[in-house]
Amino acid sequence: MESFKALINSKDLVLVDFFATWCGPCQMLAPILKEVKDTLGDSIKIIKVDVDKNQALMSSPEFQVKGVPTLMLFKQGKMLWRQSGVVPKEEIIRTIKSFQ
Rank of each mutant, 00 (worst) to 15 (best):
M1R: 12
E2Q: 13
K5R: 12
K5D: 15
A6Y: 15
N9C: 08
S10W: 15
S10L: 14
L15V: 11
L15Q: 06
V16T: 05
F18L: 03
F19K: 02
W22Q: 05
C23M: 03
G24W: 07
P25R: 05
P25L: 01
P25C: 03
Q27Y: 13
Q27K: 13
M28R: 11
A30V: 11
A30M: 12
I32Q: 10
L33Q: 09
K34A: 12
K37R: 14
K37Q: 15
K37C: 07
L40H: 04
D42W: 13
S43G: 06
I44Y: 02
I47M: 07
I47H: 06
D50E: 08
D52I: 08
K53Q: 10
N54H: 04
L57H: 04
P61H: 05
E62Q: 08
V65P: 00
G67T: 14
P69W: 10
P69G: 06
T70A: 07
L71V: 04
L71P: 01
M72Q: 05
F74Q: 11
G77H: 07
G77V: 14
K78E: 15
M79S: 12
L80F: 06
W81T: 01
R82F: 02
K89C: 06
K89S: 10
I92Q: 04
R94I: 10
T95P: 01
K97I: 12
Q100F: 11
